[in-house]
Design a protein around this nucleic acid. Structure first.
Lengths: 183, 183
DNA sequence: TCCTGCTATGCAACGAGTTGCACAGCAAGG
DNA sequence: CCTTGCTGTGCAACTCGTTGCATAGCAGGA
């Protein structure tokens, strides 16, 4: 379990409310660690009780007050310790791979339906790649990184870009294979 | 939720016991859908109660009896229906990406420790790739697939191979970035 | 004016998945 | 002979994550 750690990193990069965190998880960090707002609020409460983070009340005109969370020294120590732990093997859950193998056990119409669905899925990933590339142009225009933080954020983004490119190429392979099945 | 469906596909490819399924999930299917044996037994029980699969008692000399599960017609229909559903976006949980961004908030010693850990992690993925390539040479030696099932299994395996190659290249990028941090 | 949507926080219930443990017999090696 | 390891099944407790729902004020468009 590491939602806590993803939140610590996100709050160190920029303090913010639960609501803001939920949105960041939809955009930046969330590409590598997803979470819903309900889960984030619950974990924030626990982390606050454990003293890893503290909240500061921020009054806002015309909007509900928010609680801006930031990381405490004990919270920072928790993160440092976690960084030294072994990286766990990822728990892979690739639904599409299961469906592709399952396509051997359905009829021709089912295979065609899957083909259409794969094409739609491919378009989604193409959009994600375009978003990553736009983000890269915006946030990392130069060749030399501004500082350590930027260099590390950039290499993670490059990982996302490489992943999406690999997925697109594989989906083309899948589409060609589905088209080439006996019929 | 789709462990049920992964089990249906695996049992259609080859009927077997819970124990055998757990091992397949460690090897073949498990590269794309992980599960522990406890979870598999529980889900097999539910699927049996729902009539998706049936068990046949197999007596074995010198070993505990086992229950060989196979898919029923209703189970096959469940799989067919599921194949027609939308592919859900994957819930990404990439611990290493979080750690890499977190490396901006630790000291030099912590960054070096992470570098060592990334190198170890890279060796694991190199071993996985070698296993995939060996499996490909063994199971798909020819250029023309034997049948639909083989063609689909092969394209999924090619996806695993492409994924591992992408990961290795990205890890090299990460290692270079960690080495190049200010110090 | 009314409806939709955004900011902002949170509870309750459920389902999925992990961890720890238990039992039982056989095979193989030190 | 004893220990380790494999085959085989399963329960119980717990944590993690999702889904549905609730509240509340303001902004903006039809």
């Amino acid at each position: 379990m590491a939602l806590e750690h993803a939140i610590l990193v996100s709050l160190l990069e920029q303090p913010g409310s639960g609501y803001e965190l939920a949105h960041r998880f939809d955009r930046s960090i969330g590409r590598f660690w997803t979470a819903t707002h309900q889960q984030i609020y619950r974990v924030l409460g626990r982390m606050g009780a454990d003293g890893w983070i503290t909240a500061e009340q921020v009054d806002q005109r015309g909007r509900p007050d928010k609680r801006r969370w930031s990381v405490t020294d004990p919270g920072r120590a928790v993160l440092t310790d976690w960084l030294r732990e072994e990286v766990q093997p990822e728990a892979v859950r690739h639904e599409l791979a299961v469906k592709v193998r399952g396509a051997a056990f359905t009829d021709r119409a089912g295979q065609v339906a899957l083909l259409v669905e794969v094409a739609r899925y491919r378009a989604d990933h193409e959009a994600v790649l375009a978003r990553y590339l736009a983000g890269e142009r915006r946030d990392f225009p130069g060749t030399v990184p501004a500082d350590d933080r930027a260099a590390l954020q950039h290499v993670v983004l490059r990982g996302g870009i490489a992943y999406e490119r690999m997925v697109l190429a594989w989906l083309d392979d899948v589409l060609a294979t589905l088209r080439g099945l006996d019929h």
